[in-house]
């Protein structure tokens, strides 16, 4: 059986290669912070956050990738689905942002709230995170603070030790009218984000 090609760190200088438009280079990037075009149906939301290292210092050279289902809980490209489960063709559900592109080191995604993918799981967004000093990427999930009932029943959240579940829940900022959720990622420490083995 062929052995998997080993992972290596993304290093500090991926910006001009993977998300050139965010770093002031010419060229069309594959994926960006704006995930949903105007014609995509769904509740508009923004997800904003930062990544922190074990000293509590903001990480200015991380790459965050999001992947999510559409409003009806359908993933782009899911083959073999019955016709009524076809995903929204205008929504690919993929975005990626480098934190070095923002003067404050934030990532900001403009997307839509995903639906439940199977009727069991609460609405969530998959996160893949790369950075210098991370020899393999890590994966986590964003859940939403205003889906409290669904979160309580979510089979994945229920496997997470109770004291760590909050690290996966993006907090809606009620002071803002535009459905902004904040979601910080902590690599280490008391609030170390739960990562998943996928």
């Amino acid at each position: 059986m062929p052995r998997q090609t080993p992972s290596q760190t993304i290093g500090p200088f991926f910006g001009f290669g993977l998300v050139p438009d965010q770093y002031g280079f010419a060229g069309t990037a594959v994926g960006g912070g704006t995930m949903a075009a105007d014609q995509v149906p769904g509740q508009r939301i923004r997800i904003v956050g930062k990544v922190f290292d074990g000293a509590g210092t903001m990480v200015p050279d991380a790459l965050i990738e999001l992947w999510q289902a559409d409003r009806a809980g359908r993933y782009d490209g899911s083959a073999g689905e019955p016709q009524d489960r076809l995903p929204n063709a205008a929504f690919h559900g993929f975005g990626r942002v480098g934190t070095g592109a923002d003067p404050d080191g934030r990532f900001l995604f403009e997307t839509i709230k995903p639906g439940s993918v199977d009727g069991l799981q609460a609405p969530h967004v998959h996160v893949t995170l790369f950075m210098r000093g991370l020899l393999r990427h890590v994966c986590t999930r964003i859940y939403f603070s205003d889906e409290h009932e669904a979160n309580l029943r979510d089979p994945v959240l229920c496997t997470v030790p109770r004291g760590r579940r909050d690290t996966l829940i993006a907090q809606r900022d009620d002071a803002l009218s535009d459905h902004t959720y904040s979601f910080d990622i902590h690599m280490q420490g008391e609030r170390e984000t739960v990562f998943f083995d996928v």
Partner: peptide
Amino acid sequence: TRLRAPTQAPLLVPEFLP
């Protein structure tokens, strides 16, 4: 890696994705 590697093992979740 000292300050950026997670310290807790990633959680294994069955049926993580379709």
